[in-house]
Every structure is written in structure tokens, then in C-alpha cells.
């Protein structure tokens, strides 16, 4: 029953056998061993919490409700692929600095939604940021510092090296 699929995961090609009912989240976490994408135990009954968000071809997607075979031939980024060998992504730096993290369970998903937003819209308004985070729940932070962190990263990414 299983299908062999091949896709780009965090910049490297991976090939893996998946069952038709397996979610991308299960494949990433169990078969590929990357545990940074969070499992909120919705078991497919999605509550729109966004903890499992990954980026597929530039768009933020819930990996827990996406059958894994659908990513064959596509480009997937998870939290483990956000930093580069040179260092953290500006969003990661901003989340740390702005205090956008408390328990951390939503953080991976928030960062993925935020990256997808900034890649497409480098200078989002508050409302555009809120719109991009509609599908991500956070129980701890009240979202305020997450929004601040995204604004901070956006500002820095538009004014690279030495800018304010």
C-alpha cells in the first residue's frame, strides 16, 4: 500500500515510504525524526491551533491534516530548516529578543506562519500580521509580543547589516 515519495525537506532531498493515510506531520516526526514541528494530538480533528504548521512551496500549511504523499516533488520547510549555518533567522532572533515565547509549544508554528508572511510581504501592517496568524493559537503570550517580534524582524530584514 505504501508509496515512495521524494521531496525537498529543509534544503535536502529526502525519499521516504508513506502510507496513504499518513499525515505529513507523522512522517516528519516519526519517520524522519524531526520533532520540532509540534503535535497537538488533534488526530485529524483540526482545531486550527497551528502548532503543526510547516511551509510548503512558500505557503504555511497544517501538516497534521495533510496526507504526506501530497508533498511528493515539493519543497517543505520545518522549524529545523529556519536557521542557517550562519545563524538564526531574523524572525528567530526577534522572537527571542521581543519575549514572544513562553511555554514554546506554539512557537514553531508561529515562526512558520510568520516566515511565509514575510517572504511574501516584507512590510506587513498590524492587520496583515494578525491575518497571517489567524490560524495559530497561543495560550500563554496573548499574542502581543509575537506581533512585536514579527514587526521587529520585518524592520531588520528590510534594512540589512548595520541598519536599525
Amino acid at each position: 500500500m505504501s508509496t515512495r515519495i521524494s521531496f525537498i525537506l529543509n534544503g535536502s532531498r529526502v525519499t521516504v515510504d508513506v502510507e496513504p493515510w499518513e499525515s505529513l506531520l507523522d512522517v516528519i516526526r516519526k519517520k524522519l525524526g524531526l520533532k520540532g514541528t509540534k503535535l497537538a494530538f488533534c488526530r485529524g480533528a483540526c482545531g486550527g491551533c497551528g502548532a503543526c504548521t510547516v511551509i510548503i512551496d512558500g505557503r504555511a500549511v497544517y501538516s497534521s491534516i495533510l496526507p504526506a504523499y501530497k508533498v511528493d516533488g515539493r519543497n517543505v520547510i520545518t522549524i529545523e530548516g529556519l536557521a542557517s549555518p550562519e545563524g538564526l533567522h531574523p524572525l528567530q532572533e526577534a522572537f527571542v529578543e521581543a519575549g514572544a515565547i513562553q511555554c514554546g509549544f506554539c512557537t514553531s508554528g508561529m515562526l512558520m506562519s510568520a516566515k511565509a508572511l514575510l517572504d511574501e510581504n516584507p512590510d506587513p501592517s498590524d492587520d496583515e500580521i494578525k491575518d497571517a496568524l489567524r490560524g495559530n493559537l497561543c495560550r500563554c503570550t496573548g499574542y502581543v509580543k509575537i506581533i512585536e517580534a514579527i514587526k521587529l524582524a520585518s524592520k531588520r530584514m528590510r534594512r540589512p547589516a548595520g541598519g536599525g
Binding site: 519575549g99 514554546g104 512557537t107
Partner: peptide, 13 residues
């Protein structure tokens, strides 16, 4: 920054 935010921001926690 919160003490444990570095590991949380890279998905290592």
C-alpha cells in the same frame, strides 16, 4: 530574553 527561548526557537525543546 526568557532563559529557555533559544532552544524553543529552533525546535529543540
Amino acid at each position: 530574553p526568557k532563559y529557555d527561548s533559544p532552544e524553543k526557537v529552533v525546535g529543540e525543546a
